[in-house]
Amino acid sequence: MSIDRATIEKLGELAKILISESNVEVTTRSINDVLTLVDQLQAVDTAGVRPLANPLDATQRLRSDVVTEPDCRDQFQALAPAAENGLYLVPKVIE
């Protein structure tokens, strides 16, 4: 399967990665190279094979409902690009 410019633009939108005009072509080409590689999978007969999401086929262990995390807001917000009054600041959210 080969993808075109419109698909690349949609992927950029979904993945929130700006793909500049000058990069669209080279990005499309290299992604098509990768897709050509992975297309080898299409030839395999996998009828009836259960997908393997975890290599050990293990099941989930649960946590008890106990508060273990103290307030570390100041430590965390020291890392933030923009924070004020305990809030992270971002350009206006429009719903």
């Binding site: 923009a82 004020e84 009054n85 305990g86 809030l87 992270y88 600041l89 971002v90 350009p91 206006k92 959210v93």
Partner: peptide, 15 residues
């Protein structure tokens, strides 16, 4: 939660 009160034209995020 996104708080839309004005912070210099920005939104505040409370997680």
């Amino acid at each position: 939660k996104s708080l839309h009160d004005d912070f210099h034209g920005m939104s505040g995020i409370d997680l």
